[in-house]
């Protein structure tokens, strides 16, 4: 099978390696970053859409719309977005962006730990593909499942995409709080578990399955790659603690998720806290306020 990959960056290259490991041929469509010549590629994305039934979108979340516009998938294509769930600019699910920008109907999302360097150097990993279409999950499984990369299936498209969007936020919160003076392991545990808890709260309000968030797309992603020093999402939080309010990917996602939470009247104090720090509130004040919130049930 020939598998189209939209995006020639490192994530696109990692996915191409996984396609090869599963015994198939990748075909990378690129616009800005040319992949190494050993990986078959084209600067003509529609050519890739025409040649491949299955397309994997491997761009950053805010590039998905452009990638789809350039590629123009058609009715025969199945498109799986291997990205961060939500378009930070519009707050739309990335699979909805595909539906809005193309004639493709059969879409899905791939999420989970994505340690690109490890995958490129042959490390073992796993992911979860969600789609309402059995055939989309089945095609993705054929394209990627191998002894190097296990693919699990889910029908919880909302949960998988929300996990993808929220884990960078939780990772940045982790980076932010652990950089504060006096923060210890208790603080780390608090932020990580409550970050997941508020993700579950929003997810269930949106009709997602709460178990998705403790699976590969949620906890798996968080533990394996994001909540550790050196990861860009973690470092975005560290930078925030130091007063650098650059609009990083986790911040954009946090704002988009908060938009959703407001629509569904769901409280997300930690995510809100991250945004408040970016808007100028001192991190210590935010943490103090969060700690002084009235007691509540752990899950409600």
């Amino acid at each position: 099978m020939r598998v189209g990959i939209l995006g020639g960056g490192r994530w696109g290259q990692a996915l191409a390696r996984l396609v090869i490991a599963a015994g198939h041929k990748p075909f990378i469509a690129w616009a800005d970053i040319k992949p190494p010549h050993v990986l078959p590629n084209s600067r003509n994305p529609p050519e890739v859409a025409a040649a491949c039934e299955l397309l994997l979108v491997a761009t950053s979340a805010d590039e998905v719309r452009r990638a789809i516009r350039l590629t123009r998938p058609g009715p025969r294509n199945r498109v799986v977005v291997a990205g961060r769930g939500i378009d930070p600019t519009t707050g739309a699910w990335l699979t909805d962006v595909v539906l809005q920008e193309s004639d493709c109907l059969r879409v899905g999302a791939l999420a989970g730990p994505s340690p690109v360097d490890e995958i490129l150097s042959g490390g073992l990993c796993a992911g979860v593909v969600a789609s309402r279409y059995d055939e989309v999950r089945s095609l993705l499984l054929t394209a990627l499942h191998s002894s190097r990369y296990r693919v699990y299936e889910s029908v919880d498209l909302t949960g998988v995409q929300l996990s993808g969007a929220m884990m960078p936020v939780v990772a940045a919160l982790h980076g932010l709080t652990t950089s504060l003076p006096g923060a210890g392991i208790g603080m780390e545990a608090l932020v990580l578990s409550r970050g997941v808890a508020e993700t579950i709260r929003l997810g269930t309000a949106l009709g997602a399955d709460s178990t998705t968030f403790v699976g590969l797309a949620g906890m798996g992603d968080l533990v394996a790659s994001q909540a550790r020093p050196g990861h860009p999402h973690y470092e975005a939080g560290v930078a925030l603690a130091k007063g650098d309010t650059t609009e990083t990917s986790p911040l954009k996602l946090a704002r988009a998720v908060l938009g959703l939470a407001r629509l569904f009247n769901v409280e997300m104090p930690l995510t809100q806290g991250l945004v408040r720090v970016a808007e100028g509130t001192a991190p210590i004040d935010v943490i103090t306020e969060l700690m002084q919130r009235r007691p509540s049930m752990e899950y409600r």
């Binding site: 039934e53 009715p75 025969r76 004639d103 059969r106 279409y133 059995d134 055939e135």
Partner: peptide
């Protein structure tokens, strides 16, 4: 003509898939 692509393969043969059709019907 365009709609055919949602139920046919690259050779234009109709591919029956009950589960896919359920999702289409939901739509």
């Amino acid at each position: 003509e365009h709609r055919l692509g949602y139920v046919t393969d690259a050779e234009g043969r109709v591919q029956r898939d009950e589960q896919r059709d359920h999702v289409y019907t939901d739509r």
